[in-house]
Design a protein around this nucleic acid. Structure first.
Lengths: 343, 343
DNA sequence: CTATAAAATGTAATCGATTTCAGAAACCGA
DNA sequence: TCGGTTTCTGAAATCGATTACATTTTATAG
């Protein structure tokens, strides 16, 4: 047996499909109470549920958001998606999820087309800006015909963006080390083709400059976000510049790699070497020593993105598709044992 | 301007909509080459893309899988979703994602209805079995009219299930501790209303029984998966039973909690106390000491679920909706420093 | 050069809703 | 009782495809 349709309800309630539709819509006052009840009764009797499919086809609205995500195996992105889903759910949207494995996806066009052919009401592009992977934005013919918001990408006058202030985050982390008394602060960055990594590095630089601390080129080593690269980074830094007494690792994974290697190299953390990470991954306090870090509320970022996008969708089809806007969240300094230096 | 439709293409190519549709379908041989090319040309000229919405409405197939997930902030579930997406993508399915926050969701009916009203081709229920949260399965009227596969739940003759063998995992972990020479092995379980937690506990019990080692009731303490509960658990166990020399913590988070507390209590790990966790979270080797654990390939679990579900969908509408079947994956023992005892 | 089968295309119904437009019913004052 | 609103309901078009069936065209055989 197939779905019960609005026609079935109409037949049972002995009214037209139009009337049933009106009862369904709810707001329309032009329905006699008696009729409404008869229809309601038929609906319940039949256990009728309208087909979102048919509805969307006609209305060109699907109450669906297209989500393009990346790196769900990692903590940050997972939280972002979770936040997106929370808010979307509250606002009555469902998610169409697509994950990208290679950040340089080239089938952007197909992807966007697929989502649009399902009448998504808006799109959230939650793929970090890496290298040229956002170059497709230059080609305006690819721009979707629905609002699209970009997460964790560089704000620009033609985009709708939500991101965490990585530059400030980098500054805060570095300043904290300075306040703790570090004199020579090394940096283990993420891959520098990541916009976020560059921003954090910039924060480190600016923080040092503002207080006139040394900032040799060699104090910087580029990791790849992995713990192993944190280990390598630390080895490089300390062998070449033994005077280094503070490390800002641009994510927690590299930080714990550094933590481990420092121990192996006989450096006490934090007495000889203060270390701070970035992300505040789950149970960061259970590393040894407990890891200081920058917390960024990715769940809130996700929620915020949906909320903003929702507003744009509501405002709707009137004029501009996407008001160029940048929503920036601030990270938070979390001080734990790994950076509690001279006291 | 609105979407270009199949009618536009038909007009430009000077054929009927039916012909365009046939060209689109591809397989139908009953198309003259000349016509096909004319249509193709029109399609490209117009940049036409068919509407999945309309297509699904007619065909009652959406090439979409409904995913109901839980706990995306955690490592395991994230990987599962990622795996699901990978395989789905390869098989040409898109995902409709819905996350549950309270495991005891009571709006199951609405949720299922929502997905079905969007004509999902199948459903993956990736919410662990906790307490009575699967009780709705008793009410067959709720059963969706499309195949549904359950992840990480107890296999039963009326369900289609994919899960990791937690019982065996528990046995393997415990046996490992035994082989390392532990004589008194304590257990920090997850919440016992979780099916997975109960299975792991059972594994512990069976492993001990099979070699005749002591297994007092007090050797068991129930945690809540959090690192903090691991700390508490360890305190309880060691103060009451100082003879304990091995701990099987039923997930890594509790294990690292135990690791930390053991250090605080002056027990050397692994010399005085061997500890093994479960999950193999990212960078588990960077805890101190590096954490032994059971690895479960949740990505593969997700992929497998999709593959199986896909087969059922393909086999399709013929007869039974869901062949009762249980696909069981085996976990893998990962030995690191935290459990390398007597040598 | 027909008769007939095979190949190619078109017509129109269909999927399941929404919505415009028009007609019927109810109400109200004169 | 009549005309004019206001309220309520229905018929039919529409969204954008697919597909059963009908029809035309082409190929093949006799």
């Amino acid at each position: 047996m197939s779905r019960t349709t609005i026609a079935d309800v109409a037949r049972v309630a002995d009214v037209s499909k139009a009337t049933v539709s009106r009862v369904l819509a709810g707001q329309s006052k032009y329905i006699r109470e008696e009729t409404r009840q008869r229809v309601q009764k038929a609906i319940e009797e039949l256990g009728y549920h309208p087909s979102d499919m048919a509805r969307s086809l006609k209305s060109k609205r699907s109450c669906t958001l297209g989500i393009v995500g990346y790196g769900l195996e990692f903590f940050g992105p997972s939280c972002t998606i979770s936040g997106i889903e929370q808010e979307a759910s509250e606002l009555g949207y469902t998610l169409l999820l697509h994950l990208i494995r290679q950040p340089e996806t080239n089938n952007v066009e197909e992807l966007l087309e697929r989502m649009q052919s399902r009448y998504v009401d808006g799109i959230i592009w939650a793929v970090p800006e890496i290298g040229e992977n956002h170059a497709w934005l230059e080609d305006k013919t690819l721009w979707p015909s629905v609002p699209i918001i970009f997460l964790s990408t560089e704000p620009r006058p033609d985009r709708f963006v939500a991101a965490v202030d990585n530059h400030n985050g980098g500054m805060m982390a570095t300043r904290h080390l300075i306040v703790q008394g570090c004199q020579n602060i090394g940096l283990i960055t993420g891959p520098l083709d990541w916009w976020e990594a560059r921003q954090r590095k910039l924060g480190w630089k600016d923080a040092l400059e503002s207080v006139g601390l040394p900032r040799k080129e060699g104090y910087v080593v580029e990791g790849n976000w992995s713990a192993l690269s944190g280990e390598h980074g630390l080895t490089q830094l300390l062998t070449r510049y033994p005077e280094i007494d503070g490390i800002f690792a641009c994510n927690d994974r590299m930080a714990v790699g550094a933590l481990k290697r420092a121990r192996q190299m006989g450096r006490r953390v934090p007495e000889d070497l203060a270390i701070i990470g970035y992300d505040d991954v789950q149970d960061a306090e259970y590393f040894y020593p407990a890891l200081s870090t920058m917390r960024q509320d990715m769940i809130e970022l996700g929620r915020l993105a949906v909320r903003k996008l929702g507003q744009v969708i509501e405002a709707g089809h009137n004029d501009v598709l996407c008001p160029p806007e940048a929503v920036i969240l601030q990270p938070e300094l979390i001080v734990r044992a790994s950076s509690l230096l001279r006291k």
